[in-house]
Amino acid sequence: MSAITRDEVAHLARLSRLALGEEELDHLAAQLDVIISAVARVQEVAAEDIPPTSHALPLTNVFRPDEVRPSLSPEQALAGAPAAEEQRFRVPRILGEEA
């Protein structure tokens, strides 16, 4: 039995915002199946009462004084933009046709 179906992989691609072709999906589905079966080994570990670790070292939230500091100019911030207009990032339409 496979760990993940091709339909699930297609769904993952949509969630991941990756417009993948049929062939690429086939290829990835087979590889992800192997990888997921391998990493599922973590489920063998008896860890009932073990707390999860998200960071290796203890972290406390760090605050800084709310002071104005030098930052990027609009020109610098927009310098790498694929498209810009009137000191703003120009983006494709964000709403559907019928909206």
Partner: peptide, 12 residues
């Protein structure tokens, strides 16, 4: 089953 479990393994 996956991420949560992996974080517990990290503790171990």
């Amino acid at each position: 089953a996956y991420y949560g479990k992996a974080q517990q393994v990290r503790t171990l």
